[in-house]
Design a protein around this nucleic acid. Structure first.
Lengths: 186, 186
DNA sequence: ATGCAATGCAAGTCAACACTTGCATCGGGC
DNA sequence: GCCCGATGCAAGTGTTGACTTGCATTGCAT
């Protein structure tokens, strides 16, 4: 084996297992095996399982180009950009928020990672607020507005990943944004 | 202690701990303590942790009066009935779906419990389809329609329960249904 | 009152997991 | 070529959790 293990590989294995098995179910042994690294090395480099997971999530967040969503003046396009970022970028990113909120919140040592989805919502809220100021979107709490935009997408991802046998249809993002605008646009 | 333990009490303790700690985090010892029952008794009566959890979830589903939602001819009222059933009935019920989808799906021995939310969605779909036939709602996959209706409510519950310090505002169900109808109604 | 079945209690088994230790090895920087 | 730090490997520790066993107790039915 080469000297200096590949952090990227470790993080990827960690995230993959987290999404599949949850925090408790993703054992350090499994992560080590999937990353082709010795389990002991994980502890030597990252200290503990919690720290490893925190590092992996932070890395994932940095990969996630949330700030690539910008105000362009075209409401429809910007909203589409948001749901697409959330939904189609990579299967990993689309499940992250759910994982963090439902699982990470239970483990105090990982509490801080919960800020990731909140930061994301906050970023989107900024843009929503600008459109509200321009009266392209109706008034109302921008936080709730983001929830109305992303909620159906999140639930769709959730149900689809929960049981492949159920054949849940994939959401049509174009139509979703259009209908969102019927209710929230001006 | 009395003879014949109280199943209701055991189920209540089980659900409560599941919602708070997840499947892995809710230990049989904790459940026993909270239900004021000996841990051994749980195994004697329910066989295993998985069977206990399955029984508790089944019981919870029966409590959840999903079939109380009926077609009345008033779209707005019926949709309101759905989101209210989901959101405000009891704090437990409002988190159940998330728990089942995000946690139960990971444990093969509990796979069947995942049908609970799907059954619920199916029930709602029936009513949606009827309104679509009457052209009170626009056409489109009723499954996706239910997701658009419940998604924002679910995400709101999720974020609010994730971190109380974040002060996520509570969703206004009346307004949500109204805006949903703007996008999906006729 | 008595017997039986459900429960409580104490102790223990077994496996898995996070994490540690000691030592061998490998590979790049000097 | 040599050294040192990062890695691999084997074994082990301590804890915890699901589940078991043996026995005492309790309470309802008869």
């Amino acid at each position: 084996m080469a000297k200096q293990i590949d952090d990227e590989q470790v993080y990827a294995a960690t995230i993959e297992l987290l999404l599949a098995k949850g925090y408790a179910g993703a054992t350090t042994k499994m992560i080590a095996r999937k990353a082709h690294v010795n389990e002991v090395t994980l502890f030597r480099k990252y200290g503990s399982k919690a720290q490893l997971v925190a590092a992996a999530l932070a890395h994932e967040r940095d990969q996630m180009a949330v700030d690539s969503v910008d105000y362009t003046g075209d409401v429809s396009a910007d909203l589409m950009h948001m749901v697409e970022l959330y939904h189609s970028a990579t299967p990993r990113q689309s499940q992250m928020m759910l994982l963090i909120v439902s699982d990470m919140a239970r483990y105090p040592e990982l509490r801080e990672t919960i800020q990731i989805p909140f930061e994301m919502v906050a970023t989107f809220s900024q843009i929503i607020m600008r459109y509200q100021a321009e009266e392209q979107l109706r008034e109302g709490d921008p936080f709730l507005c983001v929830q109305a935009l992303l909620g159906p997408v999140i639930v769709n991802t959730m149900l689809r990943s929960a049981d492949a046998a159920m054949r849940v249809p994939m959401i049509d993002l174009q139509e979703h944004v259009a209908r969102f605008l019927s209710g929230y646009g001006n």
